[in-house]
Amino acid sequence: RQGFVPAAYVKKLDSGTGKELVLALYDYQEKSPREVTMKKGDILTLLNSTNKDWWKVEVN
Rank of each mutant, 00 (worst) to 15 (best):
G3S: 02
W55T: 03
E20T: 14
G16M: 13
K52H: 11
E58I: 07
M38A: 02
G41F: 05
P33D: 13
N48K: 06
Y28E: 00
L44G: 05
T17W: 12
K31F: 06
T17I: 11
K31N: 09
D14C: 15
Y9F: 13
R34Y: 14
D53M: 14
Y9C: 13
S49T: 10
K52L: 09
V22E: 00
L13I: 15
L47E: 02
K39A: 09
P33W: 10
N48R: 06
P33L: 08
T17L: 14
A7E: 03
T17V: 13
S15E: 11
V59Q: 14
L23D: 01
V59A: 12
F4Q: 03
L44P: 00
K56E: 14
T37A: 07
L44Y: 10
G41C: 07
D27V: 02
A24F: 02
K11M: 14
G16P: 15
N48Q: 09
L46F: 03
T37S: 15
V57S: 00
K19N: 12
Y26A: 12
Q2H: 08
E58H: 05
S32V: 04
V57P: 00
P33G: 08
L21R: 11
L47K: 05
E20H: 13
V5D: 01
K11C: 15
E35K: 04
A8G: 11
I43E: 03
Q2E: 09
S32A: 08
K39I: 08
K40H: 06
K19P: 14
D42H: 05
L23H: 04
T37Y: 04
S15Y: 13
V36N: 02
T17K: 12
L23W: 05
T45F: 12
W54N: 02
I43M: 06
D27C: 05
T37L: 03
I43W: 04
I43S: 03
K40W: 04
V36W: 04
P6Y: 03
S49F: 07
K40S: 07
K56Y: 15
E20D: 13
Y9I: 08
L25H: 03
L46R: 01
G16H: 15
R34F: 13
N48S: 13
Q29E: 14
S49A: 13
K39L: 08
A24C: 12
T37D: 04
K52T: 11
K12H: 08
Q2R: 15
L47D: 01
T50K: 11
A7T: 05
E30P: 13
P33R: 09
N60E: 10
K56T: 07
I43R: 05
V10K: 00
S15C: 15
V10C: 15
V57T: 00
K12Y: 09
K56Q: 12
K40L: 05
D53Q: 12
L47W: 03
R34S: 13
L46K: 01
D27I: 02
S49Q: 10
K11R: 12
V36H: 04
V10P: 02
L13N: 02
R34K: 12
T37G: 09
V5E: 00
G41A: 03
W55Y: 07
R34G: 14
D42I: 04
G18W: 08
Y9G: 07
K12N: 06
W54Q: 02
G41L: 03
N48I: 07
V57F: 00
P6S: 01
K11S: 10
K19R: 14
T50C: 11
L46I: 06
V10S: 01
Q29S: 11
R1K: 12
K12I: 11
V5P: 02
T50M: 11
L25T: 05
N51Y: 07
V59F: 09
Y9E: 03
K39Q: 09
G16Y: 12
S32G: 11
D27W: 03
P33I: 09
D42C: 06
Y26D: 08
P33Q: 09
K11Y: 08
L46M: 04
P33A: 12
Y28P: 00
K11F: 08
P33E: 12
P6E: 02
T37N: 07
P33K: 11
E35C: 06
S15K: 10
T17R: 12
M38Y: 01
P33Y: 08
V36M: 10
V22D: 00
R34Q: 12
F4P: 00
T37E: 04
K52P: 15
K40V: 08
E30S: 15
Y26S: 09
A7R: 11
N51K: 06
N60I: 15
R34N: 14
Y28M: 01
S32T: 13
V57M: 01
G3N: 01
E20R: 14
E58K: 07
I43D: 00
T45Q: 10
L23F: 07
K52E: 10
E58Q: 10
N51H: 11
A24W: 01
N48V: 08
N51V: 05
Y26E: 11
A7Y: 02
E58Y: 05
E20K: 12
D53Y: 15
Q29F: 14
L44A: 06
Q2G: 06
L13E: 04
K12P: 09
K39C: 10
Q2K: 09
T17H: 14
L47N: 02
R1A: 07
E58L: 08
E20S: 14
N51I: 06
D14K: 12
G16V: 15
W54K: 02
L13V: 11
A24E: 00
E30F: 07
V5A: 03
T50A: 10
P6V: 03
G3T: 02
A7I: 03
K11D: 07
M38K: 00
K12F: 08
V57N: 00
R34D: 13
L25F: 03
N60M: 15
V59W: 08
L44E: 01
K19Q: 12
K52V: 13
V57Y: 00
A7L: 02
G18S: 10
V10I: 08
E35A: 06
K39F: 08
T37P: 08
S15Q: 12
D42K: 02
V10Y: 00
L13R: 02
W55A: 03
G18T: 11
G3A: 04
K31D: 06
L21Y: 14
W54E: 04
E35D: 05
P6K: 04
R1P: 06
Y9L: 15
P33V: 09
T37F: 04
E35F: 06
G41R: 02
K56R: 11
K52Y: 07
G41N: 06
K31R: 15
G16A: 14
D14Y: 12
G41K: 01
K31I: 06
K12V: 10
D14I: 12
